[in-house]
């Protein structure tokens, strides 16, 4: 649980570039994750681009109920080719955009 790498942990690895075995660059992951959130919230890409690490997600957006969050996680599984376990889902991961991004980075690094 607490072993999920933070954004700063994985950033160094990814910035080393080629040969890390990571399937997706940080920028590509950031863009894909924003695109997924834009789809779920029905916002346009400009609004999604404005999300930063401190942008609040679950708990801040009343429309993001448990079914929408479940849909978001399932879409992340499909589009990022990761598997999200029950234990992965915690308040920290869903609290902010930065938390979700760090989580996705950690999952991709495991893969």
């Amino acid at each position: 649980m607490s072993t999920t790498p933070t954004a700063s942990d994985t950033q160094a690895t990814e910035e080393t570039g080629e040969g890390t075995g990571l399937p997706m660059s940080r920028a590509a992951l950031d863009a894909e994750l924003k695109s997924i959130i834009a789809d779920v919230l029905g916002i346009d890409s400009e609004q999604a681009d404005a999300l930063d690490n401190d942008s609040g997600l679950f708990g801040h957006l009343p429309e993001l109920d448990s079914m929408a969050v479940a849909g978001l996680l399932t879409e992340m599984e499909d589009r990022l080719d990761i598997v999200i376990e029950d234990d992965d889902v915690d308040g920290e991961m869903l609290e902010t955009y930065g938390g979700l991004l760090a989580f996705a980075e950690g999952k991709l690094a495991e893969a």
Partner: peptide, 15 residues
């Protein structure tokens, strides 16, 4: 897949 999403929604709600 449908069930997985619905079950996941319940785990999130129950938490």
């Amino acid at each position: 897949k449908l069930l997985r999403g619905m079950v996941r929604a319940r785990t999130i709600a129950s938490r």
